[in-house]
Nucleic acid binder design. Structure first.
Lengths: 130, 130
DNA sequence: GCCCTGATTCGACATCTGTCAATATCGACG
DNA sequence: CGTCGATATTGACAGATGTCGAATCAGGGC
């Protein structure tokens, strides 16, 4: 995977709204978004991100779900394959943590002309320059 | 399944990293992320967002894909059901446009402690799993 | 060495998803 | 009114996905 598109040369807006995504990049982003497209995985990510120290072991977070441990492990694997998590074994336990740059990249892609704030509620006007 | 309850109301950071997502919210967000978890839909969204005027008719964007017209229509329906797009019929054509607040919400959720701030605890390695 | 605990992998299953061809709907134009 | 072009809906189908139980792997303690 190539996550180098973060620093787009001279791009003032999000690439999503600036120009059509290339197929390659769309596929790359879609894999990450698809990993987030499951409530269990979203909660897993949130649990890990909000855990003390920014990391958590499986035994700790699996208690928050009604799912079997293999299922939790499967979801963690999906998140890791998508590049959103990383993990490390320490003795008996395996600790997971979030990869901040991955989330940041996704967040940046979604930042369109709307920007971080929406001052005007009447969005009917199309203010996008041609 | 007793998660730690809300600490306090004033959320200064992203809720994803502040505290575990509630099941309701995770389900809501997951529906939107799942809609983005397909390269075709991502490109559709990008094509519409980057189109002149911020909106595009189906006949225009469908040319960029090798997919059948019903498939394009299906993906547009998914994006609309997720609250990411809205559409309007004008004569023969149907125009679609992006709902900025939806993308903004998703972008905000992903803005964790990473953001503009450089994390100091887990900066030992930035390599992603292969 | 042997077992015990934590975590992953495997195999199987039902369900969901993406795709197409065929058909239907909706509006414009003779 | 009939037809035509643009979208949407339906039905069907292969492939992906989420889930579990069982088996397996990895360390620690006896």
């Amino acid at each position: 995977m190539s996550n180098q598109e973060l620093s787009d040369g001279g791009a003032c807006c999000s690439p999503l709204a600036r120009e059509p995504l290339t197929e390659d990049w769309a596929g790359d982003l879609a894999r990450m978004f698809k990993a987030l497209g499951d409530p269990v995985r979203l909660r897993l990510l949130s649990l890990i991100a909000s855990h003390a120290g920014g990391e958590a072991c499986v035994c700790d977070i699996s208690e928050s779900f009604d799912l079997s441990q293999p299922t939790i492990s499967h979801h963690l694997k999906v998140l890791r394959a998508a590049g959103l998590l990383d993990c490390e074994r320490r003795g008996t336990w395996v600790y997971y943590w979030v990869i901040p740059s991955a989330l940041q990249q996704l967040s940046a892609v979604l930042l369109t002309e709307s920007g971080p704030v929406v001052p005007s509620e009447t969005c009917t006007s199309t203010e996008v320059p041609a």
